[in-house]
Design a binder for these strands. Sequence first.
DNA 1: GTAAACCCTAGAGTATAGTCTAGGGTCAAG
DNA 2: CTTGACCCTAGACTATACTCTAGGGTTTAC
Lengths: 136, 136
Amino acid sequence: MTLKIGELAALSKVSRDTLRFYEKHGLITPSARNASGYRLYSDADVHRISFIISAKEVGFTLNEIHQLLKLEVTKDEKSCQDVKQFVDDKIAVVNQRLAEIKRIKTSLQTLSNACCGGDKPATHCTILEALSDQTN
Amino acid sequence: MTLKIGELAALSKVSRDTLRFYEKHGLITPSARNASGYRLYSDADVHRISFIISAKEVGFTLNEIHQLLKLEVTKDEKSCQDVKQFVDDKIAVVNQRLAEIKRIKTSLQTLSNACCGGDKPATHCTILEALSDQTN
DNA sequence: GTAAACCCTAGAGTATAGTCTAGGGTCAAG
DNA sequence: CTTGACCCTAGACTATACTCTAGGGTTTAC
């Protein structure tokens, strides 16, 4: 299965321009071009863009994502130890972020539960009150 | 306990400029000023900046964070139903992000485990291979 | 009592991540 | 065989989130 840029854009919910922008910055290169120079994306490209989007959504910069993806192409030049160290560092970052997002989720949920759900004023509904309720 | 801007900056690991910037954009206002106009931050301010930083780290924009924090001051003007709806929407976003970050963590961990940890080339170490290993 | 280390404002400059425009070629349907 | 919906490049423009500079006042330690 190959997709043209507009099709991949629709599928991934990003713009064509964004795909070209990511390409210019080395994040994703279509696996082929047709005779007229149209970009043709493969299944692997679909996975790749999906990873890029997920990573971005949870707060990684394009630069960091680039580093993560680069592990693929530099694999023979770096020792395994280096790769492992880099990835383990990223796991630590991800764990931190996981804890933060859970904290935010808990406060949002406390907030939602505190709300009556009726149409009275939400007098006791504040994020910061919800946050400080946590034994954290 | 009150802190001057430099002290809060050191504590929160952001720059003074960032704190002033956040203030300009309505995210945080010091609870007081001294006679010379120096900003004085309270415990509540410390919690507030900590929330802002966490929310930002996990991918919320300053604008979204502003909306979350604004629930505090607009509480009497909005009906509880409105607040609940807004917060529940945010919870959905957070759940999505939680799933994504877990997916990334799993792939990073698969990647790390696949690495020998020795000093041989990391021939089979790629994020995308790790990602596609997942039954996802 | 002065020098280093802080604080203030206002506004310019920068990095990141797109988004849009101009000017042109391609393709599928009618 | 042309019209509308696509595709191309190059480069200008925008939004977000800082970061820095200039020019000046304040505080604290020696």
